[in-house]
Design a protein around this nucleic acid. Structure first.
Lengths: 106, 106
DNA sequence: CATTAAGTGAAGTCGTGGCTTCAGTATCTA
DNA sequence: TAGATACTGAAGCCACGACTTCACTTAATG
């Protein structure tokens, strides 16, 4: 199950979606509980949750009429994998530059 | 110099922009050299480069009529920082779930 | 100096994304 | 069983983003 890295980053590019993740980092929540503090419709949350599920950040589980949402690690791992894969190229590049220039890291 | 994390992730959410970063990981390039393999206009590349500069992924330097582009680390570091900041919350959550049933935790 | 090359700026097109409303469908509760 | 609760699906609105074209500026080159 290979995640689309485009969609993974796009998912994180939305503040409402990151807010959902922050809420869920405190513990599982229902859809309507997520909607309350975020100032958007339940429908909107539902749509965001679909994106977050498809990108491996959230897993949901409907019990009765309530959908319970919790964090999942796949999306997060995809980000970390991208980071580690690119860190080397980055550092090699910046390394090379470091020999030619003064090393000014901010 | 705090980067907007929204824009950082949005920047990475575009395949053309990630392709630009991949090209630059092989070494500095001019705008037109970047445009060649990517099948878009020089203008489009210019617009992407503006985004990548604002999000700390690229630094450019115009010499004569040629703009030379190379990788920068700030954007990359912002991603890694976000990852490390959230890894703990993620792991704690997934940990806790291991011991509990899914239940209302309020 | 004239011509070509490299890039910029402004404007417009087109598709997508985030959001809403509204009309359902289950499910729980009095 | 009636009514409230928790969502879901479809449709539409609107803004923004990726891209183009075209006109332009600036720089290298014969």
């Amino acid at each position: 199950m290979n995640l689309d890295i485009d969609r993974v980053f796009q998912a994180l590019g939305d503040p409402t979606r990151r807010a959902i993740l922050d809420c869920l980092s405190l513990g599982p929540q229902s859809v309507s509980r997520l909607a309350e503090p975020l100032g958007v419709t339940i429908t909107a949350i539902g749509q965001h949750l679909q994106v977050l599920e498809e990108t491996g950040f959230v897993r949901t589980d409907k019990v009765g009429r309530v959908r319970s949402c919790r964090l999942e690690s796949a999306g997060f791992k995809a980000v970390e994998q991208w980071a580690t894969e690119h860190r080397t190229a980055w550092e090699r590049r910046l390394d090379t530059l470091g020999r030619l220039l003064v090393e000014d890291t901010d």
